[in-house]
Amino acid sequence: MTYRVIAMAALLGSASTLHAGGIDRSGQSITALFESGRYAEFSLGSVSPDTSGVGAGPRSAVAPTPGANSGNMTDNFFTFGAAYKADINDQLSYAIIYDQPFGADVDYPAGTGYFAQGSKAEFNSNALTGLLRYKMPNNFSVHGGIRVQTIEASAAIPFIGNYSVEGDRDTGLGYVAGVAYEKPEIALRVSLTYNSKIKYDVRTSENSVLGSNVTETKVETPQSVNLEFQTGVAADTLVFGGVRWVDWSSFEIAPNDYGRLTGGGKLLSYEDDVYTYSLGVGRRLNDTWSVAAVAGYEKSNGGFSSNLGPTDGNKSLGLAATYTRDSMKITTGIRYINIGDAETTLGGGQTAAVFEDNDAVAIGVKVGFTF
């Protein structure tokens, strides 16, 4: 039975969300490391979010524009990924994986009368991960390696002292470590992978009513743990899923002048860690086609969300199909994400805006080759 065909559909269904908690995008999957033989893949994802809110009332210092609609404040975005895996011998294999693990594209429309109109923010990252895997004779294996990652960020927030900031691109180094158990005769695999935090010292140029200043901002992209599983439950049928934990409560971007303008505020931070759950089923229809469906869930934590990320949890449903011909597999998937309602604040413990009934649609394509 070609369980690998089903697993490819499962992978795209779970990884193409591209709209997870915090600024999580890729999910940092290492699934390519478990492919058979020599393998290469390329993937492209597109996400179209619709995220808007309404100013709370009555008018006050913490709710300055009651009833004003923000308009859609999230731009469409694309992500790209690639991986190459090969065997060294019967016990050792390696993989090189490229992804864009974290990102944000915020663009509040101008002319809406909403207090954050004209505000923009962008966060980009690129990561290259090198992994080794050692298979033990008892169906267990261990894997680990290093990750080289770059980040860069910028923002313009007119309603905070006409503030803008530009963070230069910086490079950091982290590591990956994990363990897996496999039972090929029933297509069972369970893997646990830890991704370390990565530290940066970002050269930061700030402009505001305080003037123009160049400082250094310390940033740490968060540590995370991925638990992923798959198992055959009937002929040509696979159940799969996973849990991802990200330490978002330890993440912040806090430039010096922004803190002075806001009395110690952070440009971007999160109060809670995020757990992302997924569960799905895949089915091989014939030697050419397989299909999969997956559901995803992130708990809403309550409290206030950032004006640069006004979401709180989500629910999602994805569908994927894989076409196989000779050594090539082409997987396409689509996922609908219902974005959790959120409230934002400008201080004082009061609501400035309410974001409700928002959603996103993600589409992905992956092409894999075995040779």
Rank of each mutant, 00 (worst) to 15 (best):
S154Q: 02
A156S: 12
A156P: 01
F159S: 01
G161I: 03
N162A: 08
Y163W: 03
Y163H: 01
S164T: 06
G167Q: 11
G167P: 03
G167D: 02
D168F: 02
D168C: 04
R169I: 06
D170A: 14
D170K: 06
G174H: 10
Y175T: 03
Y175K: 04
A177K: 04
G178P: 06
A180P: 13
A180M: 13
Y181P: 09
E182A: 15
E182C: 12
E182L: 12
K183C: 11
K183M: 15
P184F: 11
E185I: 08
E185W: 13
I186A: 10
I186Y: 13
I186H: 10
L188N: 09
L188E: 13
R189F: 07
V190W: 08
V190K: 07
S191P: 12
T193N: 14
N195P: 07
S196K: 09
K197C: 01
K199P: 00
Y200P: 00
Y200N: 10
D201R: 09
V202H: 06
V202M: 11
V202D: 03
V202E: 04
R203Q: 11
T204L: 05
T204P: 04
S205G: 04
E206C: 08
E206G: 03
N207P: 02
N207K: 13
N207F: 11
S208M: 08
G211C: 14
N213L: 12
N213A: 14
V214L: 12
V214P: 05
V214F: 09
T215K: 11
E216F: 14
